[in-house]
Design a protein around this nucleic acid. Structure first.
Length: 492
RNA sequence: GCUCCGGUGGUGUAGUCCGGCCAAUCAUUUCAGCCUUUCGAGCUGAAGACCCGGGUUCAAAUCCCGGCCGGAGCACCA
């Protein structure tokens, strides 16, 4: 019996890439830098570079910055991408700027014109759309290569105005799929490009630029969202005209993050411009830099995307999964502190001055010191206003690591200071966190908005660390300003 | 309208190509219990899925047909 079944091995990590040869794989991530990388971009960055690593290949970061108008590149964003790639552990082996390579595209365009595969079309987009819908060729489709070349040159020379003409690739105007009928390759733009200024007036469109670049860079595998799946079919026309071989393509489906909805750079840019968000690293924005600021680890994002895998089905996933990964990474090290949101200063009557000594971390032995002074038998602590108000009158609770108190009216009465192991559980005494009267003001910036609070003074000595505010959640201490501490909330 | 793609617990995911070892993997989530002077973490247990209908077959999550649902593309955007 010839049994050559492929064995069923439960695979860990990414699936094999078709036709991938170790050492020969070249992959790229090709964003338009019209904003910073978002969590969505991180998927492309991580997956492409991860596969490149898996096959000991090459990972290229290519800026597809060929639209100075509608998706105008942001000059700062180029560096944002480079920085975020390396932060994500996806250091590019090479960085390519499409806006530097217009001459190359022009050469290829001219070759296609000469061979009769491209023509200058003077229809308005509206006219062309109608013709295309009825599978009719436009009147310019049969112009001779020679005449096309003349028109093309006059476009390059600036003799044609924006919108008056477009260079089209001939495909099959009767193709059953309307998406594949003669597509645009170049258009005329007279808006200066942020990087190269007004050096060029004829800019390629994605399907042309990307097609040429992928071939020139020797890309072997393309991994991208399925919204670009028709690109492959369109670009293959160019490849066949030029005798090139198209890379292997793998698509992933659309991702929707429960907490943020769809990730669109342009809509975020608009919201930032309108002042809805403070900037690209506002904690309410799903940019990589915002996640970093909140203390989300690059490794957590990487694991998150690796666990989603590559599949064409659309997914709608909760950030809980990302947070769970992050928690596993930071919890072993995050120091614990008290921070009270929406604080209410409450008197503790019958108290003496004391020092609380909570553990810095449950798995370690160091303790921190929080002084609580009492004057004439009255101490004051901050607790969460809501929590205090919801406490029934007469209820006994423990202020964590401090003492047991009983609520009466709008203040607490000291009950006892000794801590007896097991007592809280046995008597079902609730334990709440608190902050000292002389604590620091703390601004906690979260994806749901900002909170004012008070935290231990020690927090100010941990800038740039990810800490855990007990019973509140993990946060990264961003900075200390004269008003107090600014912290960015990560997650519970 | 035309073309293409997808559908496994609440959410992701493995398994689908090459049918049996799948009364379906792992993670997350939720709920209990233990532990910890905290939320979390950890440990233990529980909950929860093959879109529907036919067909092929000894055998279907897996192959075929039809339906339903969801998504994408049809730009002088990427």
């Amino acid at each position: 019996m010839l049994e050559h079944r492929k064995e069923k091995k439960p695979k860990k990590g990414l699936k094999e890439l078709p036709n991938a040869v170790k050492g020969k794989v070249v992959m790229r991530f090709a964003p338009n830098p019209n904003g910073p990388p978002t969590l969505g971009s991180a998927r492309g960055i991580i997956l492409n570079s991860e596969y490149a690593k898996m096959y000991e290949g090459k990972f290229i970061l290519r800026f597809d910055d060929t639209d100075p108008v509608n998706k105008r590149p942001l000059l700062e964003a180029y560096d944002w991408y480079i920085k975020d790639c390396s932060w994500l552990g996806a250091e590019p082996d090479e960085v390519v700027y499409a806006s530097d390579r217009l001459e190359l595209y022009y050469e290829i365009a001219e070759e296609l014109i000469r061979k009769g595969h491209a023509y200058m079309c003077f229809c308005s987009s509206e006219e062309f759309r109608i013709l295309k819908a009825s599978k009719k060729a436009c009147p310019h489709r049969d112009t001779s290569p020679k005449e096309n070349m003349e028109w093309w040159r006059s476009a390059l020379d600036g003799e044609l105005s924006p919108g008056s003409a477009v260079l089209r690739i001939k495909t099959d105007i009767t193709h059953p799929d309307p998406a594949l009928r003669d597509f645009g390759a170049f258009r005329i733009v007279d808006v200066p490009h942020p990087r190269v200024g007004d050096k060029y007036r004829v800019w390629p469109l994605l399907d042309f630029e990307s097609a040429v670049e992928d071939h020139m860079l020797g890309i072997t595998h393309i991994l991208r969202g399925k919204e670009l799946s028709d690109s492959e079919k369109r670009q293959k026309f160019i490849y066949s005209y030029l005798g090139w071989e198209y890379p292997v393509v793998v698509h992933w489906g659309r991702i929707k993050i429960h907490e943020f909805g769809r990730l669109s750079t342009s809509s975020l840019a608009k919201a930032i411009e309108e002042g809805v968000y403070g900037g690209w690293d506002d904690p309410r924005v799903p940019s990589v830099m915002a996640f970093r600021r909140r203390g989300i680890q690059a490794e957590a994002i990487r694991r998150f995307y690796l666990s989603l895998g590559v599949d064409e089905s659309d997914i709608s996933v909760s950030l809980e999964n990302l947070y769970a990964e992050n928690r596993k990474l930071i919890d072993p090290h995050a120091k614990r502190f008290f921070m009270v949101k929406n604080p209410l200063l409450v008197e503790v009557r019958g108290a003496e001055s004391t020092v609380a000594n909570p553990l810095v971390h449950p798995k370690r032995t160091e303790r921190r010191k929080i002084e609580v002074r009492a004057v004439d038998g009255v101490a004051r602590v901050y607790v969460e206003e809501d929590e205090f108000k919801q406490l029934p009158d007469g209820r006994t609770i423990r202020l964590k690591n401090l003492y047991i108190v009983r609520k009466e009216g709008d203040c607490f009465y000291h009950v006892k200071s000794e801590f007896v192991r097991g007592e809280l559980k046995k008597k079902k005494i609730k334990v709440i966190h608190w902050a000292p009267e002389d604590g620091l003001d703390c601004l906690l910036r979260t994806p749901e908005g900002d909170y004012r609070g008070v935290c231990e003074r020690e927090v100010a000595n941990h800038v740039d660390e990810v800490v855990q505010f007990e019973r509140v959640g993990f946060a990264r201490i961003d900075c200390v300003v004269k008003e107090g501490v600014v912290a960015y909330f990560a997650h519970k």
